[in-house]
């Protein structure tokens, strides 16, 4: 019995040609969570991803008083290396959270813009468009946020990282379709021993 002919394991409700719409869908779902699913015709699912992931990201951002998504220069700190002696840029090694936050898409890009245009050590003026949004807060402010608040600043960055990591699954869904397990009865049976 040919499993793929009679019992297709990926029997989607919507028929999406992932070989054509997969890559553009994944790129769009990275930029704006759920947008890839929307262009693939899975509109309700795309809207679910859009509201859930953006909601979680901005909820976390608000919990952290809009100051827990940033990419520091960390110029004055010693460089760190991975176990295999590979160098990691200071901006990532001292703010590993951004590696997770990055995957939420455009919503996390202001941090990159602020990183490349302003150095927090020189106390630069606010950006004409973004102000100090997603800019590295001064050390004294960070200490106050971490020590005097009710831990919601830390809780906030956890929410933003989870939003980014969840969006990786959304990107995969846009690229390849939903990851459905093959039901037990449809699994291919091992060949019987004829001896």
């Amino acid at each position: 019995m040919n499993l793929n002919e009679e019992n297709p394991p990926m029997a989607h409700t919507h028929t999406v040609n992932y070989s054509i719409l997969g890559v553009p869908g994944a790129v769009l779902s990275y930029l704006v969570p759920g947008l890839g699913q929307i262009i693939q015709g899975r509109i309700s699912k795309g809207l679910l991803f859009f509201f859930c992931i953006n909601g979680l990201f901005y909820y976390g951002l608000a919990l952290g008083q809009w100051k827990n998504v940033y990419l520091p220069h960390a110029n004055n700190l010693p460089p760190m290396s991975l176990p295999l002696n590979q160098k990691v840029p200071n901006c990532l090694s001292y703010r590993l959270q951004y590696v997770g936050q990055f995957w939420v898409g455009i919503s996390a890009w202001p941090a990159i813009y602020q990183h490349f245009n302003y150095d927090e050590d020189s106390d630069p003026p606010p950006d004409p468009y973004l102000g100090k949004y997603q800019r590295t807060p001064p050390e004294t402010e960070l200490n106050l946020l971490q020590n005097r608040s009710d831990r919601s600043w830390d809780l906030g960055w956890v929410y933003t990282v989870i939003a980014g990591v969840l969006n990786i699954m959304v990107i995969y869904d846009a690229l390849m379709g939903p990851v459905m397990l093959i039901p037990e009865k449809q699994k291919p049976q091992p060949p019987k021993d004829l001896n």
Partner: peptide
Amino acid sequence: GYYWHLPFLILVISLVYSATRHD
């Protein structure tokens, strides 16, 4: 107070995770 933020997180994770596995 920060425990009250948990239900939203659980709701979002369970919804998004399930939606990435099924249509």
